[in-house]
Each structure stands twice: as structure tokens, then as C-alpha cells.
């Protein structure tokens, strides 16, 4: 599925910051927001979505190939940058697809503009303090140990990252630095976000890996309660990086949800 998708690289300048994004496909727009560990260039999950939608995958400011704004302090800043980007792109029918840390950004975007989106898809989103358990702290874990913790199936990690190149390690260090710059304390959640999600009009799909060792599923339940129209789907045998671990199922869930009228 989707092996021949033609991705194009784009550059934009938003808030004085050079942003890199990839785009492919046509139809309704999906804004796919990557994890705290950044993203590789191509993923089967992205291809599967681009077979049916106009898919926009930016590198967060400071991550990957996007420039670092020295002033950036919070995922809410990134949310505002992406609202600006969407306005510049002139896309209107948009469903953000937030992955982990990107899910937090997506939720902030929705809370800032409760009528902006038609639908909202959150896969293992960070951003809310789990009522039970804690968000795993990457600061005390090594570069490979942390991403690996987010995979239930180690073979899936190997499939995506292989033996892990030094370039990838460097990218993870930069991603980690950006995570610290934007989400150091409280670590990976906002104390105000749960109170602000109730205004969001868009129906929300929340997907959780039952074996998520980075963000406990109790945070998924908290998201469902905070949003006015949300479903929580828990996939057994999957971890935090669910779109890399189970690309077909994840893409089908998102496609069915985002494609519905």
C-alpha cells in the first residue's frame, strides 16, 4: 500500500523560523505531527494516509530540518506556529493527526481554536498528566533505550531504525534538547490543557497502545473525559510508537475516522 507515493519537500517561513515539511496526496488535509524523537523521512504510515488524503508532515521547529527559534518555550508556541502555517497554506478542511508529543501540539491547536478543525486524531498523545502512572523520563535514559521503550515489539524498532546510524543518534540528541527546551517542567504535560479541551467542537479519535510504556493509558482516559466528543481505542500488544509498530492498523483507524462525513 502506498509504495509509489510522490512526496515533495517544501520550505516555509513562519514566525521568522524556517520550517521544513513534506507533502503528498490529495483530498482532505491531514496535518501529521511527529513525536518528541522526531521523524524519519518516510514511513509506511505516512504513505498509507497519502493514498487517500493530502498529507502534510512538518518537522517541528528545532527538530530535524526545521530551524530552531531561540525563543521557543512550549508546545503551545509550536501549536501557534502550525496554525500560522495552515493559514499560509490556505487549507481549510484539516484533521490534525498527532503522534505522542505531536498529539499534545494537536490538542493545543484545537484548544486555541475550538472550531478550526473538522476532526482531531490523537495517537498516544502526551500533554496531560496521567492520573495513574507517570510519563517515562527520557532524560535518564540513553538515546537508543528511550525509543526502544516505546516499542512493544523490538522487531518493529529494527524495521524502522536498523542498527541506528550516528546521524540518527545526533538527530535524537537534538530532538531531546528540543524536548527539554519546550517541555522540561512539568515534563511532557500541561497543567492547563485539560481545562481548555472542553471547548473543542471536533469529534476526536484517541488511540492508545495497551503496552505503552512511555505514556500510561490513564492519560488516554483523561483525554477522553476532557474532550466533549471523543472515543478511546486501545490496541492490544502495541506500544507508544504505534504508527511505526502497527502502521496498517493505525492508518486504517485514522483513515476511517478522518474520511468519515
Amino acid at each position: 500500500m502506498g509504495g509509489n507515493i510522490a512526496w515533495k519537500e517544501h520550505a516555509a517561513t513562519v514566525a521568522g523560523c524556517g520550517l521544513h515539511y513534506m507533502r503528498a496526496g490529495s483530498g482532505r488535509s491531514l496535518l501529521v505531527l511527529h513525536h518528541d524523537i522526531g521523524t524519519v523521512e518516510r514511513l509506511p504510515f505516512y504513505d498509507a494516509l497519502a493514498a487517500r488524503f493530502d498529507v502534510i508532515v512538518p518537522h517541528h521547529p528545532g527538530w530535524g530540518r526545521s530551524e530552531r527559534p531561540a525563543w521557543l518555550r512550549h508546545p503551545r508556541d509550536i501549536a501557534a506556529i502550525y496554525q500560522w502555517l495552515l493559514a499560509d497554506l490556505g487549507v481549510s478542511d484539516v484533521c490534525p493527526v498527532g503522534l505522542g508529543f505531536g498529539g499534545w501540539i494537536a490538542a493545543e491547536m484545537a484548544s486555541l481554536a475550538p472550531q478550526r478543525f473538522r476532526r482531531l486524531a490523537l495517537l498516544n498523545p502526551m500533554g496531560i498528566k496521567p492520573p495513574e502512572g507517570e510519563i517515562a523520563d527520557q532524560a535518564i535514559l540513553s538515546y537508543i533505550a528511550y525509543p526502544m521503550l516505546g516499542f512493544h515489539d523490538e522487531a518493529a524498532f529494527k524495521r524502522v531504525y536498523g542498527d541506528v546510524s550516528t546521524d540518527q543518534l545526533e538527530a535524537w540528541d537534538i530532538a531531546r534538547e528540543m524536548s527539554f527546551r519546550t517541555a522540561w517542567k512539568p515534563y511532557m504535560y500541561s497543567q492547563t490543557l485539560p481545562h481548555l479541551l472542553g471547548g473543542v467542537r471536533a469529534p476526536a479519535l484517541i488511540v492508545w497502545g495497551a503496552e505503552n510504556r512511555i505514556v500510561p493509558v490513564s492519560a488516554g482516559e483523561a483525554y477522553r473525559s476532557a474532550l466533549r466528543d471523543a472515543t478511546l481505542t486501545v490496541l492490544p500488544g502495541a506500544g507508544h510508537f504505534i504508527e511505526m509498530e502497527r502502521p496498517d492498523e493505525s492508518a486504517k483507524l485514522v483513515s476511517d475516522f478522518a474520511g468519515a462525513n
Binding site: 532524560a139 538515546y143 550516528t166 543518534l169 545526533e170 540528541d173 534538547e177 527539554f180
Partner: peptide, 20 residues
């Protein structure tokens, strides 16, 4: 920790950190 170190040493450091 990430960001503490001089960026010029990043590449050497990440290799050391994973035991390479």
C-alpha cells in the same frame, strides 16, 4: 544531558553514550 554539552562535541558524544 542534551543541550548541556557544546554542540561541537555532539557527534562524538552520542557515539560514546551508546558505547560505540
Amino acid at each position: 544531558p542534551a543541550g548541556y554539552f557544546s554542540p561541537s562535541g555532539r557527534r562524538g558524544f552520542v557515539e560514546f553514550a551508546v558505547g560505540r
